[in-house]
Structures are given as C-alpha cells and as structure tokens.
Amino acid sequence: MYVCICQQITDKQIREFCEGRQVSMAQARAELGIASDCGRCGKFAKQIIAESALTTGVSSIAYAA
C-alpha cells in the first residue's frame, strides 16, 4: 500500500529499507523522500519503521517527521 503519495513510496519499500538495521526517520526522509513534501505520511512511516525494528530485533531510532 502507498504510504507516501507525493513520492510514491510503499510500505514494502520502507520495510525493505529498514531490514536488519537501525533506521531513523531522518535517514528514511533523506534516502527515500518520505514526508519531504506535504508530510502527511510522516506519522504512518514512523510507525512502520518502529514495527520493522521490532520484527527484526533491532531497536528503532525513529524520530518525528
């Protein structure tokens, strides 16, 4: 499902980006472009980053968008 309509980023892309490593919201914004236009996706993207950290056993450092 699309999380960021402005940049056409899906939840799958975010999960793949986070796979097996610590990722901050700032990193996701810089590399994927999440929440860099209208910002409405920031809260949901942050949630996906945190969930990805829990499923891979890596602690998340997801900051507010």
Rank of each mutant, 00 (worst) to 15 (best):
M1P: 09
M1L: 11
Y2P: 03
Y2I: 02
C4V: 06
C4K: 02
C4N: 03
C4E: 01
I5E: 14
I5V: 10
C6Q: 11
C6Y: 07
Q7D: 01
Q7N: 11
Q8I: 04
Q8D: 14
Q8L: 09
I9R: 00
I9V: 12
T10M: 09
T10E: 08
T10G: 10
D11K: 06
D11F: 03
D11P: 05
D11N: 01
K12D: 10
K12R: 13
K12T: 07
R15W: 00
R15S: 08
E16H: 09
F17Y: 13
F17P: 05
E19M: 13
E19A: 10
E19G: 05
G20D: 14
R21Q: 15
R21S: 11
Q22Y: 05
S24R: 15
S24L: 11
S24G: 14
M25A: 15
M25D: 04
A26I: 03
A26L: 08
A26R: 15
Q27G: 07
Q27E: 15
Q27P: 04
Q27T: 01
Q27M: 14
A28L: 14
A28T: 00
R29C: 14
R29V: 06
A30E: 10
A30D: 15
E31F: 06
E31R: 07
L32D: 03
L32N: 04
L32M: 08
L32C: 07
G33E: 12
G33A: 14
I34K: 00
I34V: 14
I34S: 03
A35C: 14
A35D: 12
A35F: 09
A35L: 05
S36F: 06
S36P: 00
C38N: 06
C38L: 08
C38K: 04
G39P: 00
G39H: 08
G39M: 03
G39W: 08
R40E: 06
R40Y: 15
R40L: 07
C41S: 06
C41Y: 02
C41A: 06
G42I: 00
G42H: 05
G42F: 10
K43V: 08
K43G: 08
K43Q: 05
K43R: 10
F44S: 00
F44M: 05
F44E: 04
A45S: 12
A45Y: 04
K46N: 07
K46M: 09
I49A: 10
I49N: 11
I49T: 11
I49H: 10
I49F: 14
A50S: 12
A50E: 13
A50W: 03
A50N: 08
E51C: 03
E51I: 00
E51G: 00
S52V: 02
S52D: 02
T55I: 08
T55K: 11
T56I: 02
G57Q: 10
G57D: 08
S59M: 08
S59N: 07
S59I: 05
S60G: 01
S60D: 10
S60I: 01
I61Y: 11
I61K: 09
A62F: 09
A62D: 04
Y63G: 04
Y63I: 00
Y63W: 00
Y63K: 07
Y63T: 03
A64H: 13
A64P: 13
A64V: 07
A64D: 15
A65D: 06
